[in-house]
Design a protein around this nucleic acid. Structure first.
Length: 282
DNA sequence: AAACAAACCTGTGCGC
DNA sequence: TGCGCACAGGTTTGTT
């Protein structure tokens, strides 16, 4: 579900609503959500600590604790983070609850909610990051947090072959682009999902890198994309609005908003549904 | 090595 | 109304 813009929106919410508040108590209702290090490590690692920072690398949220430990939260397909007043009815699939020290007299909890349980919460010693979270070291550049331009992208694509879309989804190439934004980016630069990297000029790669930054930044500005199922909401429960700007994703059969002459088509590529305009994208 | 399918889960929407 | 199937924002693992 959530891609870089949604994850960044959640990170900002954690930064403003959770960072700086002591964690008084921790409940883990589902072992699977903390499978990487186990329930004990999460409960003991968080209880009594205070988050001092909330960072992000691609789709990974990384929070620093005043104990020196760190917390990694990955939402995968259906994870959500919510901050709600203590005592509020918790939704189904609320797997981890952090009781926060009251702020301005308000008692609140942070919930990790995740129906499909692909997501996870990990508490770890940052000195052991390479062993606990080996995937972090393999991530490509973050198009928002890191220096990212055509030169960087060309470097990441060097030596790789095949269709462009699966490469944009590869987190080792670029960290944070997912299925919606890959389709939107490719449409903006007029590239079809099937174009192979070896046919891309350096100038086109510059445009591609620029469009990645541009679209992700615009989406962050809009608070991310919330689809019909309203699965994605920020920590306050607000929906995003970037779906109103989608030009291909979820628009199968509708007229292309750019050329106005062809209808958007949808095919399966590398197991992911892929929307494109056959006229605008070559 | 790369391309693809399956796996991990639950919920929803659709056709019959 | 009910049932079975396809599919969903991600990522890893195993197989050709």
């Amino acid at each position: 579900m959530p891609e870089l813009p949604e994850v960044e929106t959640v990170r900002r919410g954690i930064e403003s609503r959770v960072v700086g508040r002591k964690i008084l108590d921790v409940e883990v209702g589902r072992e699977r959500s903390v499978r990487r290090v186990g329930k004990e490590a999460v409960v003991h690692g968080l209880t009594g600590t205070t988050m001092v920072a909330a960072r992000r690398r691609g789709k990974y949220i990384l929070c620093d604790l005043d104990s020196g430990d760190a917390v990694m939260i990955h939402l995968r397909m259906s994870g959500r983070v919510l901050v709600e007043p203590t005592g509020t009815q918790r939704p189904a699939h609320t797997h981890v609850v952090l009781q926060l020290a009251p702020r301005d007299g308000l008692h609140e909890e942070m919930w990790f909610v995740d129906p499909r349980t692909f997501g996870e919460v990990v508490v770890y010693d940052p000195r052991l990051e390479a062993e606990v979270l080996p995937e972090l070291a393999k991530l490509g550049p973050d198009p928002i947090s890191d220096r990212f331009d055509g030169g960087v992208l060309a470097e990441r694509l060097a030596g790789r072959r095949g269709a462009i879309k699966p490469l944009l989804l590869n987190q080792h190439v670029v960290a944070g682009v997912g299925n919606i934004y890959a389709d939107e980016v490719l449409h903006r630069v007029g590239l079809r999902w099937s174009r192979t990297v070896d046919t891309l000029s350096r100038k086109k790669i510059d445009k591609l890198a620029f469009a990645i930054r541009e679209i992700l930044a615009e989406a962050i500005e809009s608070g991310g994309s919330t689809l019909q199922d309203t699965q994605y909401v920020d920590v306050e429960g607000n929906v995003g609005s970037f779906q109103e700007n989608h030009r291909v994703y979820g628009r199968e059969g509708l007229g292309c908003l750019t050329c106005g002459k062809t209808s958007i088509r949808r095919v399966m590529v590398a197991g992911r549904s892929t929307a494109y305009c056959p006229r605008c994208q070559r």
